[in-house]
Amino acid sequence: MIKKGWDTFSAIRQVAAQLGVQPERIRIAGIKDAHALTAQHISIGSMPPQKVLGFKLEGLRIIPVRFMSEKLSSRLIYGNEFNIVVRDIECSLEIAQSRIQETKSELNNLGGVPNFFGHQRFGTVRPVTHEVGRLLVKQDFEGAAAVFLSKPSPHEHPKARRARRRLQETGDYERCLAILPRMFVYERAMLRYLSKRSSDYLGAFRRLPQHLRRFFVQAYQSYLFNKFLSERMKQGIPLRKAQTGDYVVELDEKGLPTERFERAEANNVLEINKKIASGRMTIALPLIGFKQRPSSGLQGEIEKAILEQEEVNPSDFQLEKMPEASAAGGLRTALTPVLNLDVEPGDP
């Protein structure tokens, strides 16, 4: 799927509508920036290639590649490739090249870049996705609806800001629906429902696609992961040397993380660090979920403090009233490698 000017979920919704399938039949392995020109693999269940060839929409193309025997998931993706243009650099070419070399050396020494989730995970224009997810995890559906529908952003469409502020002031779903621009499909679906059933917030969220409900909770998992990793770095705890209590995952021959993991203990930490140094293992932090417990040791203390501050427990990710959005959790590497980094000056 090649797109420009589309966020990933809106693009998937349009593809599904034109092909006459439910959005849940389309699987992705990550979300891409709405403004950049991006290309990503998707899978569409039981879809003949000739039908995809007829797809046509401005800023959006689907190119059939091949059949595959399983649904697409992030574990099948080797990595992302970027072509980035930096303009209006104020320093000289010599200084820029020197700084680039310093950065490349630093990345090589570190073994990659800290594996933070990017801002698109939380919303580029209105970063509230993780806030909605936190309230869903706490099963505060009214609070989650209030954030999703009425929290404005200074960067969004002026009419949307006005509609959200009006809803904050009046609680009038019908009036907000009347003035919110039609491009806000998901908010309008919830507003339309709440205009008739003003206290059924759980039902309102079920007007949204299932993958979006799951995404809210996943965004909150991502937010917690970023806090875990950020605090580890602030405290100066290495990302390439395991400490007692750290999770570590095995890497395959391509350097990709596998599902095999263990915890560093006093009796194995030296051997684990040898494997990390040789590129056979890497440190991982938890994506907290109802099956994924925090680390122990120093990293565990960091995670415990953050979870207490957030007033959330791993078991909370088993959503009793919205089980389809429950999140089991897992592990994510603390570093991600940077391969084939090349920089060249462009035309003056």
Rank of each mutant, 00 (worst) to 15 (best):
L202N: 01
R207A: 02
L208F: 12
Q210A: 15
L212I: 15
R213H: 02
R214Q: 11
V217H: 00
Q218T: 08
S222G: 13
S222C: 03
L224M: 08
F225T: 04
S230A: 14
E231Y: 06
R232A: 14
K234D: 12
Q235W: 10
Q235D: 03
G236C: 06
L239T: 02
R240Y: 09
R240G: 02
K241D: 06
Q243L: 12
T244K: 13
G245S: 11
D246A: 05
V248Y: 00
V248E: 02
V249T: 09
D252G: 09
K254Y: 10
L256V: 00
P257M: 06
T258L: 01
F261T: 08
E262L: 11
R263V: 13
A264D: 09
E265T: 15
N267D: 05
N268Q: 07
L270A: 12
E271V: 09
I272F: 06
K275I: 09
G279Y: 11
I283S: 08
L285H: 00
F290N: 11
F290P: 11
K291G: 05
R293N: 08
S296A: 09
G300Y: 11
K304C: 04
I306D: 07
L307E: 07
Q309V: 12
V312K: 01
D316E: 14
Q318S: 13
L319N: 08
E324F: 12
E324D: 15
A325L: 04
A327E: 02
G329V: 08
G330I: 03
